[in-house]
């Protein structure tokens, strides 16, 4: 048993006895092992496998049959199918992300004030965070229905040129809650003195918004931007719920994740794996950008 003095030393991170030190490490391992097992089996192992499977051609049963090296990577990632998926995903992002940022700011600025009943409005604005992408898809399935819908443009979801825009309407609505809560948190973190100082300077509300508020919430907007972009790259549920034929028409709403889903059968595993790695690389680059930009601009607590 360690003495009181040793315990005190431990508290300052100074180690005294080797046995108690290793006993602590064993306890740490015990505490970490559930997470290590799950991450190992369902994050790292599958990642290693999709990278490796991409190097092999499959037979029908999904066995890794023939080593083809990186050629399958260049074939698939440079191929029409993946490029179309990436293009569709980028179109989805182009529609949903700017709209998400703008509407998030609009909702948050409107709801960030002392008014009776403001909590009710805040709850309403937050509500879509409980609505899953799939539920949003089903809701707009009826709203955009050409026979019984509210918006009855017969072609919105049937024309390959506009289908992704139709899908994005549902996505923008579903993102409102998340955009709102994130921007509102940013606004509420602005120190009162800053706003008061600006009021004393006699700046009008518009000028105050652009010269004081917007710069101060820019790190939060950047955070929201990254969240929305990454969500965009992972888009699947809404499209699966809303489009008929799924991913259609003519594959115009097939995102990268949709393509991965379509290539889930054993005989397509090699191709699907390459696409998974492609998705990883894209997400990795976006996240890396987030860190390099965010680290420079945001001061996190220790």
């Amino acid at each position: 048993m360690a003495s009181v003095r040793e315990r005190l030393a431990e508290g300052r991170g100074v180690r005294v006895s080797d046995t108690s030190r290793w006993r602590e490490a064993a306890l740490a391992l015990l505490f970490l092992s559930p997470s290590i097992v799950v991450f190992g089996l369902f994050a790292y192992y599958p990642f290693e496998q999709v990278v490796v499977r991409g190097l092999y051609r499959n037979n029908i049963a999904g066995d890794n049959l023939r080593w083809v090296g990186w050629s399958q990577y260049s074939e698939v990632l440079g191929g029409e199918d993946f490029r179309a998926g990436l293009f569709n995903t980028l179109e989805y992002i182009m529609w949903t992300v700017p709209a998400g940022l703008l509407l998030g700011v609009l909702l948050a600025v409107a709801a960030n004030r002392r008014l009776r009943g403001i909590k009710i409005f805040q709850t309403i604005f937050t509500s879509t965070v409980a609505t899953s992408a799939a539920v949003a898809g089903f809701i707009f399935l009826v709203l955009l229905n050409p026979v019984i819908g509210v918006i009855r443009s017969p072609n919105l979801l049937q024309d390959p040129d506009t289908a992704m825009m139709g899908v994005s309407i549902a996505a923008i609505w579903q993102n409102l809650g998340l955009s709102f809560v994130i921007v509102l948190a940013g606004l509420q973190a602005i120190p009162k003195e800053v706003e008061e100082a600006s009021l004393l300077d006699g700046h009008g509300p518009v000028r105050r918004f652009f010269t004081v508020t917007l710069p101060l919430i820019s790190p939060v907007l950047l955070f929201l931007l990254v969240v929305l972009v990454i969500n965009g790259f992972q888009a699947f549920a809404l499209i699966d719920a809303l489009t008929l034929p799924r991913g259609g028409p003519n594959g115009s709403t097939e995102t990268v994740v949709f393509k991965i889903f379509e290539n889930r059968t054993p005989d397509r595993l090699g191709v699907g794996s390459v696409m998974s790695v492609g998705l990883f690389v894209v997400t990795f680059v976006v996240t890396l950008l987030q860190f390099t930009i965010l680290e420079r601009r945001v001061h996190y607590g220790d």
């Binding site: 991450f39 369902f42 599958p46 992972q234 699947f236 990883f280 997400t283």
Partner: peptide
């Protein structure tokens, strides 16, 4: 593991 969401690992 935040970089390895289910969308990336789903097939394996």
């Amino acid at each position: 593991t935040l970089l390895l969401p289910i969308e990336v690992t789903v097939l394996q």
